[in-house]
Design a protein around this nucleic acid. Structure first.
Length: 476
RNA sequence: GGCCCCUUCGUCUAGUGGUCCAGGACAUCAGGUUCUCAUCCUGAAGAUCGCGGGUUCGAACCCCGCAGGGGUCACCA
């Protein structure tokens, strides 16, 4: 095992978490966990305009629901508290002063209109906008009412990104960016560097949208005399059309919605990890512990991946099937149809045993199990729409049901007895299972599909099964 | 427009010079499992490895161009 890695997840509280954010958090968490290091939650709330009330709690809830527990964070504290940037302003001021003193930061005297003019000019010349082309000769003394800018020293960089590999850029990408805004809050560009340093973060994992600014950060690290942490840049998760990065506007769902629908946390982690990472084997289903053991940054994909809900659904079904029945039962508590309240645990557990291999997500439970709890009205369409049954006369149908009823009345409704009685009925009626079993199944469930007949009857029990047979007979 | 990143079945991917006229998974289709749905099993279809040059006895893998896609150029992160 390598030496302990300290990672952080540093969202800004501007809304819910979607799969893109989860993946960044997950990979950081996996690295910390596999090396016995720490995973830190830091809230980057330096943009007061975009701040959304309750978003921080929502992010915390999401991480907890997924099991991505953090060792230090705004709500639990830690050795480098506080973990909200809005509470660390003194720190940024101190480091900013150091830059001012060393001549590497200066006040920005331009108005918004000036800036817009510069930008329009650059665009008209089909040039990228560079502030340093307009660096003032004699900047005023910074009094905190103007933005404070970094005085960059443009140069080429060559660096190794833990995911992207060797990257190089020229001096033209380096610019004088804002360190402290005129409202006194730092920019992300400045604050994250200070925080990662003070919090001793060893590995920064972040999305590709920051790739272009990283050379600026390197320039700032140098100005501060700091050694940058290891950086890992994640490819985007793409919208379903594959054309652009997944965003909330493209229907990127809140991860808590998936959890609410009954997608298991381990499914979400397995699935999100598999968007851009694999261990080189043909394994598809990974437990959380396996992810921790096997994850490595150098096997993370460099290209973007699309989020495929069908694959997610398959994977959740696979994880559900892997669960012990007791564990699955505990997870299902909130998902039963309302009518199931009147049934006892033993009955519900038996029902669950029959539908476990059919469940794709827990919110499907009512749809799959309703007839175990409610006596549905006889639905003639189930017979008329059945290719084989629709060919039989009412009398024939009635006769088969009567014979079934007569036999089942003698049954103790154990699975063994039911199985043999149903088999006997095949011989006495001379019918195929496709006809006889379908008919009884429809009569006793009134559902378009159900678990296999003998098992269903055994769980439904004698009284219920016979009553439903009677209802069907009377309706014919 | 400048700069940067990316490019293998519809989708997620394996593949780091020969065992790849490219393997697995999801989805699709067909068959099997005494009935439906699902599971499970078997099979089918599906990728001229973005394109064009090179290097090499030999390239999905190395080099060079090109094209396409994406990101970025905020007092947002």
């Amino acid at each position: 095992m390598s030496s302990p890695i300290r990672t952080r997840f540093a969202p800004s509280p501007t809304g819910y978490m979607h799969v893109g954010g989860v993946r960044t958090a997950l990979f950081a968490w996996l690295l910390a966990r596999q090396t016995g290091g720490q995973f830190v939650l830091r809230i980057e709330d330096t943009d007061r305009a975009r701040h959304v009330e309750g978003a921080e709690q929502h992010i915390i809830d999401s991480l907890k629901a997924l099991g991505l527990n953090y060792d230090e964070g705004p709500d639990i504290g830690g050795p480098f508290a506080p973990y909200r940037q809005s509470q660390r302003l003194d720190s940024y001021k101190r480091w900013a002063q150091q830059l001012i003193d060393s001549g590497r930061a200066y006040a920005d005297p331009y108005s918004a209109e000036d800036m817009q003019k510069f930008r329009d000019q650059a665009q008209a010349n089909k040039q990228p906008f560079l502030y340093r082309n307009h660096r003032p000769d004699k900047p005023p003394v910074w009094d905190g009412t103007m933005p404070l800018r970094f005085k960059s020293e443009p140069k080429a960089y060559q660096r190794i990104d833990a995911v992207m590999g060797e990257l190089s850029t020229g001096p033209e990408t380096i610019d004088d960016f804002i360190l402290i805004k005129s409202d006194g809050y730092p920019t992300y560009n400045f604050a994250h560097i200070i925080d990662d340093t003070e919090m001793r973060i060893s590995h920064i994992i972040r999305g590709q949208e920051f790739l272009a600014s990283i050379p600026n950060y390197l320039n700032l690290y140098e100005a501060l005399g700091l050694t940058p942490p290891i950086m890992a840049t994640m490819p985007h998760i793409m919208a379903p059309d594959g054309k652009k990065k997944l965003g909330k506007r493209d229907g990127a769902k809140d991860v808590l919605d998936y959890i609410r629908d009954g997608y298991l946390p381990e499914t979400m982690l397995n699935f999100i990890a598999s968007l851009g990472w694999n261990d080189g084997s043909e394994q598809e289903i990974f437990s959380v512990q396996e992810l921790i053991d096997k994850f490595s940054l150098d096997r993370v994909q460099r290209s973007g991946a699309r989020f495929d809900e069908q694959r997610l659904q398959w994977m959740n079904g696979a994880h559900i099937r892997n669960l012990a029945l007791d564990d699955l039962y505990a997870l299902c508590a909130a998902y039963w149809p309302a009518e199931a309240n009147q049934s006892n645990d033993n009955y519900k557990q038996q029902v669950l045993g029959l539908v476990q291999e059919r469940l794709k997500f827990l919110a499907e439970l009512p749809e799959l199990t309703g007839f175990f709890f409610i006596d549905l009205p006889v639905n003639p369409e189930l017979i008329t729409s059945n290719k084989q049954l629709s060919k039989l006369s009412q009398e024939e149908l009635k006769s088969y049901l009567e014979q079934a009823k007569a036999s089942l009345e003698q049954s103790d409704f154990s699975l063994d007895d039911l199985t043999s009685r149903l088999n006997d009925l095949l011989t006495t009626t001379g019918q195929k299972p496709g006809i006889l079993f379908s008919l009884i199944r429809i009569a006793t469930t009134q559902a378009p599909f159900s678990p296999s007949l003998a098992e269903t009857l055994a769980v439904l029990g004698k009284d219920r099964s016979l009553a439903r047979l009677n209802s069907q007979i009377n309706a014919l």
